[in-house]
Structure formats: C-alpha cells, structure tokens
Design a protein around this nucleic acid. Sequence first.
DNA 1: GATTTTTATATGAAAAGGAATATATTTTTG
DNA 2: CAAAAATATATTCCTTTTCATATAAAAATC
Lengths: 152, 152
Amino acid sequence: MVDRFIDDYLLYLLARASDEVSAGFHARLKSHGLQVAEWRVLATLSDGDGLRLGDLASAALQRQPTMTKIVDRMERAGLVERRSGAKDRRQVRVHITPSGRRRLAAALNDAKSHEADVLSRYGEDDSARLKSLLRSLIAQHTEDAPVDPPVG
Amino acid sequence: MVDRFIDDYLLYLLARASDEVSAGFHARLKSHGLQVAEWRVLATLSDGDGLRLGDLASAALQRQPTMTKIVDRMERAGLVERRSGAKDRRQVRVHITPSGRRRLAAALNDAKSHEADVLSRYGEDDSARLKSLLRSLIAQHTEDAPVDPPVG
DNA sequence: GATTTTTATATGAAAAGGAATATATTTTTG
DNA sequence: CAAAAATATATTCCTTTTCATATAAAAATC
C-alpha cells in the first residue's frame, strides 16, 4: 500500500493535496452559489481593468471554450459582463460587476479563514517554504514552452 | 497583478501547480489512450489483491458514481475486471488485467522520467521537503473528519 | 494591397461528471 | 428474529466540459 509507485509520485501528491485541502472550502463556495471556476474568475477580476477571455481561462485553469460558457453563465447571473473594449475587435474583456463584487467579498472571507486554518498547523517558515516551492513549480512550467519538451 | 489575493492563496497555488506540472504528463497519457483517472486506477491496482470500488474512487480522487462509470469503461476496454469476491456480497473488488498491466507499464515509464525531470531542478533536500509538506497536508485533511469543521 | 496565416472568441455535438436516489446486502436494535 | 438503520454499488437525469471546428478580425507575406 505504501510502496506503490503512485503513493510517492509528485503529481499524485500535488493532485491529492489540492483535492483534499480544497474540499472544505469548495463546499463553502457551493453554499455561496459559486462553482470553483467561478470563484477563481471573480477573484481574478477583483482588481485591474478586466481581462481578456483567454487570459481569464488560463488564470482560472480552464480551457478557452469552457471559459466562454462560464462567462455566459456568470453574465446571465449578473456577476460579470463582457465589454468589447480594445482596438482589437476580436478581444472580449470580462469585467466584474458590483453584484459580482459582493458575491466575491463573502467568499473571500471564507477563503481567508480557511487558509489561515490550514496553515495554522505550520510555522511561518514552513508556510513560506511551501508556497515558495509551489510558486517555483508553477514558474518552471509557465515561463518555458520548451521547443523540445523533455518527456513530451 | 501580483497583489491579488488569489496569487498568494494556498489553494490556488496548489491547484495551479498541480495543473501546470501535470499538463505535459497528462498529454502523454492521452497518447497511451488513458484518461488521468484511468491511469490512477491502474497505478493504484498495480499490486495487492484488487480494491473495492469505493476505495478505488477515493484513491483516484473521484466520486463513487463516477468510478462506477470509469470501471465500466475500463472493463469494456479490458483493462480491469470486477470480481464479486468477498463474503460481503455488496462489495465489488476491481482487479487489473494483464492487458491493463501492459498499458500501465508504458505509462509508468513516462511518469518516472517526467517526475525525474521536474525534480531535477531541485536538490534532494527541496524535493524531499516538497513531498513531505504535501504529504503532511494530505494527512491533515484525511485523518480527521472534524466534528465541528473550522470554517465549514 | 490582396492573399495567406495567425489570433481571439464562439458554437455544436459528444463525452464525462455530479447530485440525488434506487437497489441489494449487511448490521444493528429492540 | 423482525424491523430499522447503515453500507456498497448502480442508475437516472441533468449540468458541465471537451474536442473539433466555425467565425471574425488582425498580422504577415509576397
């Protein structure tokens, strides 16, 4: 059981940690009437001047056609709005609405207290180390789009 | 951009790290004709005497009704089989087949080299620390099903 | 500057996932 | 031991996602 490859496999540990640690908060989100991706959309749009739909998709860890539909839903719900802003008329900039902002505020409180609770088991050092390692993993795979990817 | 709450939010860092780090390997899986959950099923069943469907579901980070359908598919594909083993006749034990084992072996090679590649940027220390922190997060949220959950 | 290529978003059909519940079996309780 | 509660898996219906591709606009090329 403990000697299976997968139990020490980085990708599995990451997925499982994400899954288990998030479960409680994601249940809270549901009670706010938000899906996980919708929460990420609101949190991403909270400041700044809107985001292009494609950028929003990658920020929320979704594919572009999925984000089109998420924004459709959220627009219907009045949480965000599309503005055909820029000079490039293909682009759609998505903005958070006042109603979206209110919804976000509620979820944000839960997010903060949940995170504090999770990290309360760790000291400053370990908390910082954990986040730093995660950030480094993200950076490693974001910056470079390798011409000849190592394993494929 | 860097000062948004979400960019320093543990749950987002975990999800994003998992997503980005896994992307390359998951693409490889697809070329082996495997979905992520299917790969986890095979890797989980690789040793031992089969697993109950429900245990398999949580090992593969899926819900039980989803796992029922995954096992349906994989059984049709000849990768696993259901055996109505135990004394408890409600239980279904899922076993990997020789064909499933062959498919697993191919994916396993990719998994190992991919992980080695990801971790090659880190020393022994950081690699161990990362895995240890992840394991600790998992343990924290697995062991205890708190009677009165902190945030909900 | 017309044609080709690339980029951004949308659409549509099919696959997958999720919540609630059904079914079958076992365990518990009185 | 009969009735009730609990457990394991399956099923149904509905929502969401995915893949491939369409559409529209900009950029690049000749």
